[in-house]
Write a protein that binds this DNA or RNA. Structure first.
Length: 425
RNA sequence: GGAGAGGUGGCUGAGCGGUCUAAAGCGGCGGUCUUGAAAACCGCAGGGGGCAUUGCCCUCCGGGGGUUCGAAUCCCUCCCUCUCCGCCA
């Protein structure tokens, strides 16, 4: 949610900036609504004030033992107009917020203007794609060759976009998650958190998945309105929902390893091979809750923590800044980490690190008590540290050998009983 | 799943149709006293919003709805917490 004042007082400027995000504001409609709101709100509050004072007079008259019939009739009369005003005001407010809730965050000044991913700006590269003296294959072929990655069984169990892994590969998957958690808690100062994997709609609204992206979520049957989390960003960030935290509690550095569930409704026919895009995957997620003045430094820190994972795993990657047209709904600025995948001969996203500034905090009513002023909205940041499934893909493809075996990166060997190589049998 | 008891400001907790403009205690901030601190005493202080401008008003007692001239208080509904029973990893 943007600051409503921007939509009232700086509507034209805001609309112009939002255009770079492929978002067209109905400026005229918003202006009309704002004008009506003002009139209706003032009148409604006037009427309420009148009703309150008259009702008190009735109480006083009765206490004094007198009759109050005339007054009571008057207030009852007043109630009719009040009810009308309130109904109209609510209507205007609902339409205004319905529009406001669909508006994405404003991009930071350093974000490149652009329409799609071709306009993203590459910031830096790390590592070199290992030149092999054989033609590398992709992870799906490798996994099948090892007899440890089975898409057919997964399809029989659940359908497309699922996978069954077994043996050393399943263990490698677990090793990756453990390695990441240990790195972030042990060396980067994060607090490990175990959260629910099911949340209510209010929580999803807080981080921006609802109402606009309902089609991407798995909703559970029943009347409770439960959803499976699409990322641990949702439960972690919402830990400060409806709270005013003290300065001493900040900054918060949280890490969680959770499954993530996504409908991938708009991705038909995209990444259908292998386990790049699944309905269920695991991710180690990093969340920072900070004072407003600290969030931009924190974004660099956060991206560095995600990069450290890839560096320890010796995986080549590059960092790109997403352009205005490619950014997510809640973000003011996003760095994507793209890992090199020899099997696809290209870089693929493995982590996305965003500063949302106060956008999510405003939706969550998450504030801190600024000792110099008063309650202020927090800034929230999130980043993958990193996606476990895609990390497995990257390790397999980058560490594959000509004979179809996969070398275990040094950083993972403590989690693999010292095993150096994954091979058939 | 069944039966019962509850949800009030940062915390504890009173209030159960009309000075609720929400008691009191604890905690917090400022001051007096003190070499300093503690104690004691005095004072200050909730969140959100509107209009104006330095003040006035609206709103908030778990969420939503209703009754009433008037709701923290009565009714309906949902959520949450606790106790007992049942079931269960």
């Amino acid at each position: 949610m943007l600051d409503p004042q921007l939509l009232r007082k700086k509507l034209e400027d805001t609309a112009r900036i939002l255009k770079t995000r492929n978002c067209d504001l109905d400026v005229a409609r918003l202006q009309t609504l704002e004008e009506r709101r003002k009139v209706l709100q003032v009148r409604t509050e006037e009427l309420r004030n009148l009703r309150n004072t008259r009702s008190k007079a009735i109480g006083a008259a009765k206490a004094a033992g007198g009759g109050a019939g005339a007054l009571m009739a008057e207030v009852k009369e007043l109630g009719g107009e009040l009810e009308q005003c309130e109904a109209q005001l609510n209507g205007v407010r609902e339409e205004f917020t319905a529009i406001a809730r669909q508006i994405p965050n404003l991009p930071h000044d350093t974000v490149p203007r652009g329409a799609d991913e071709s306009d993203n700006r590459e910031e830096r590269r790390w590592g070199e794609a290992a030149r092999k003296d054989f033609t590398p294959v992709d992870h799906a072929e490798l996994g099948a060759g090892l007899g440890m990655m089975d898409f057919a069984s997964a399809a029989a169990l659940a359908g497309a976009r699922f996978v069954v892994m077994s043996g050393a590969l399943a263990r490698l998957h677990r090793a990756l998650a453990r390695f990441m958690l240990d790195l972030h808690t042990g060396e980067h100062g994060y607090t490990e958190v175990m959260t629910p994997f099911i949340v209510n709609s209010d929580t999803l609204y807080g981080t921006g998945q609802l109402p606009k992206f309902a089609d991407d979520q798995f909703q559970l049957a029943g009347e409770r309105g439960f959803y499976l989390i699409p990322t641990a960003e949702v439960p972690l960030t919402n830990l400060v929902k409806d709270r005013i935290v003290t300065a001493a509690e900040l900054p918060m550095h949280l890490v969680a390893h959770t499954p993530c569930f996504r409908r991938e409704a708009g991705a038909h026919g995209k990444d259908t091979r292998g386990m790049i895009r699944q309905h269920q995957f695991e991710k180690v997620e990093l969340v920072h809750i900070t004072r407003p003045q600290d969030s931009w430094d924190t974004l660099e820190l956060l991206a560095g923590h995600a990069e450290a994972v890839l560096q320890r795993l010796e995986l080549p990657y590059r960092v790109v800044t997403l352009c205005t047209g490619d950014m997510g709904f809640s973000a003011a600025k996003t760095y994507d980490l793209e890992v090199w995948l020899p099997g696809q001969n290209r870089y693929r996203e493995i982590s996305s690190c965003s500063n949302c500034e106060a956008f999510q905090a405003r939706r969550m009513r998450a504030r801190w008590r600024n000792p110099d002023s008063g309650p202020e909205y927090l800034h929230t940041l999130n980043g993958s540290g990193v996606a476990v499934g895609r990390a497995l893909v990257a390790v397999m493809e980058n560490f594959q050998n000509a004979d179809g075996t996969v070398t275990v990166p040094d950083a993972l060997r403590p989690y693999m009983n010292g095993e150096e190589r994954i091979g058939r049998g």
